[in-house]
Design a protein around this nucleic acid. Structure first.
Lengths: 167, 167
DNA sequence: TATTGTTATACTCTATAACTATA
DNA sequence: TATAGTTATAGAGTATAACAATA
């Protein structure tokens, strides 16, 4: 039986519950908007956005998986959907024949641009409306270290592979 | 064609991306822990926790739906699973024969207690480790108003019902 | 008529494990 | 042997619409 960890104090509970609730409500509205505006899932949007941000418009599957999704097959599924819709294309890497490089198409960039204003609108009106610029600054300064801390555990594609061999 | 909203500034983007990433990583680890420790989905855990917090140990379906889930049928599904597992029971309300009241059983409380230490452990080590008590206080003070703002739109069970009749 | 909740159904997404191919 | 990615499969969760019962 494991040690009982100290209970979360009242402040921690409040922060935790608010975080869960805020992110859940935000996620729900964002997904709805992305679906209605561009028939995109959130993962698909993240993939497109990440590719669109990249100078080359490309990324390896594994790198996408580590940043966006929790299993390789999940990414294969979502990228497959994007490819069926003509928004990305896949090609094998010249450097490493095992790797697959995903690239945004023009149609993909167009969808991204079609979807983006509504996305920003949702995020602004839901998340940022009650926050001053100072508040936003403070929030970012709190969450970035948390994200970095969470990211300091090994990437998920590696973890899920290794789990095969044992814990 | 809608007005183009002003783009999010750099700070807002940083805060938004961090929030999405933090909540996604946290949610993933929490779900894993809940599944392994008590074979609970996150929604099921939230239902149990909410009932456990209530003085009566009970709540109406609609009230649960508004606080925890995005469709009535989704809640029916999850509460059905909890009932099959013996963790809650359903009874019709004496006040309003249409209503169904959900109540935690002893077994439900036991599962909650079995699951809670690990849950706290995950949240503490992932979310709170890099934050000082002051940071936690600040974070809560930022997120609570955001949550209240988001909640000030009509509840979801009502919204999804009304959508039938038109926007 | 409106509200509460369930059900039937169809669909999306996810994860696991087995598989191929390259390093 | 290890890594990159796909596939087959099966399961969990969700939403919509139609439904019955009560207010």
């Amino acid at each position: 039986m494991p040690d009982t960890p100290p209970a979360l104090d009242v402040l921690q509970l409040g922060a935790y519950f608010s975080l869960v609730e805020v992110s859940s409500l935000l996620r729900y509205e964002v997904e709805k908007q992305l679906r209605e505006a561009g028939d995109l899932s959130h993962v698909q949007f993240q993939v497109l956005a990440r590719l669109g941000d990249s100078p080359t418009g490309s990324s390896r599957m594994t790198d996408l998986a580590d940043s966006v999704v929790y299993s390789r097959s999940g990414l294969t599924y979502q990228v497959g959907a994007l490819e069926d819709a003509g928004l990305v294309l896949r090609s094998s890497s010249p450097d490493d024949e095992r790797s697959v490089v995903v690239t945004v198409t023009e149609a993909g960039r167009a969808v991204l641009e079609k979807v983006l204003p509504g996305h920003i609108e949702v995020v602004s009106s839901l998340l940022f409306e009650p926050l001053s610029p100072d508040d936003v600054n403070t929030l970012a300064n709190l969450l970035v270290p948390v994200r970095d801390h969470m990211r300091s555990i090994p990437p998920r594609s590696a973890a899920s592979r290794r789990r095969r061999n044992g814990p």
